[in-house]
């Protein structure tokens, strides 16, 4: 690991003061499950690491007046799982349960989980994140099947981000100056890098996500389903989160479908959501929505199999939200 300066400030203001406006010079440390490993491999080499775990305002889960929940960026995943406020948000708890490692759940934080760096095995072995031929001409079995026509062919790795997106969560972002506060819809937090060195999110280097704010679900249904190779802690091959609202005839009148592990950002599928609109929530509607979700997939040379897995993830997330989940593919 390259050596670096270290600071553990106790307030949001102090965090902002310690951050550089140059990308890569300072890194925020929360649980460390991703950043420390990347620094050991010299893939990430900051001059200063700012530990935000000592900032008390980032550690709470609070009810928001008028409904909804605000979760601090450094709340750990096991704290989220155990919290009664999250009962209405099974899409989030499904995703955290899928992470399947006590250590990652008790050490990892919500902010760190959604802003973790890509798990692309070329990137993690010291090659460039964007394609220079190593991905398109190499073993791309775990890479993107959507949004991959540019040089970004990695997949966004967060397990929880698709759930936050379908739940219409917003990130509370502060900085660069003390008075700059904004609420960013989660889908807008992510972007597809177009040149080397660009991050996978739209934050400035000296901005900080302080909270993720969830609106109330108002009786809506939501769920996440991950397709994984086994029951172990490995990353899913495809995942989907859905949120659905039914009218009084039990037909879908609002739907959001966001896929994970298939594109350089969480991948919102308007086609799948449209396919559900006006339909009764049954196996046929789930099947149709799954097919619609993958209609425009553009797999690479070795990941065509992910198209069916993404389709199944959408179908089963809908069935799970509806309480109709059954075994098998």
């Amino acid at each position: 690991m390259k050596n670096f300066e270290y600071a553990a400030p106790c307030s949001e203001n102090e965090v902002l003061q310690l951050l550089s406006d140059q990308s890569g010079q300072t890194e925020l440390l929360a649980g460390g499950t991703d950043l420390v490993g990347l620094m050991k491999k010299m893939i990430v080499t900051p001059d200063r690491v700012v530990n935000i775990m000592e900032v008390p305002t980032l550690k709470n889960i609070e009810a928001v007046d008028g409904g909804g929940v605000a979760i601090g960026a450094t709340v750990t995943l096991d704290e989220i799982l155990a919290h009664p406020y999250l009962e209405d948000y099974p899409a989030i708890t499904d995703a955290i349960l899928g992470i399947n490692s006590m250590q990652l759940q008790s050490q990892g934080t919500l902010g760190g989980e959604i802003l973790q760096r890509p798990r692309c095995w070329f990137y993690r072995n010291g090659q460039e994140l964007l394609d220079t031929g190593q991905i398109s001409g190499g073993d791309n079995r775990f890479h993107a099947i959507f949004g991959n026509n540019g040089r970004s062919k990695f997949v966004q790795s967060s397990r929880i981000a698709p759930a936050l997106c379908v739940l219409a969560a917003e990130a509370r972002v502060i900085g660069p100056s003390d008075s700059d506060i904004q609420m960013i819809p989660l889908l807008d937090l992510f972007r597809t890098p177009r040149q080397e060195g660009q991050r996978e999110h739209t934050l400035l280097p000296n901005q900080l996500v302080t909270h993720l704010v969830l609106p109330p679900v108002n009786g809506g249904l939501n769920a996440t389903y991950e397709v994984r190779q086994g029951a172990g802690p490995e990353f899913p091959l495809a995942s989907a989160a859905v949120s659905l609202e039914l009218d009084n005839q039990q037909r879908v009148h609002q739907a959001r479908v966001v896929l994970g592990q298939v594109a350089p950002t969480p991948w919102s599928s308007a086609a799948a959501a449209d396919a559900l609109m006006g339909q009764p929530l049954d196996a046929q509607a789930a099947e149709t929505a799954g097919l619609a979700a993958v209609e425009e997939a553009t797999p690479l040379s070795h990941n065509g199999y992910k198209v069916q897995l993404a389709q199944v993830a959408v179908k089963r997330a809908i069935l799970r939200a509806a309480g109709l989940e059954t075994g098998g593919l």
Binding site: E5, A7, C10, S11, N13, E14, L18, N60, A70
Partner: peptide, 22 residues
């Protein structure tokens, strides 16, 4: 009143956090 201090009402003075190196 909650733990959600805003920058505008931040009670903490401008004391820079201790930066450690070496």
């Amino acid at each position: 009143a909650t733990a959600l201090h805003s920058p505008a009402v931040e009670a903490e003075p401008q004391a820079a956090a201790n930066v450690v190196s070496g």
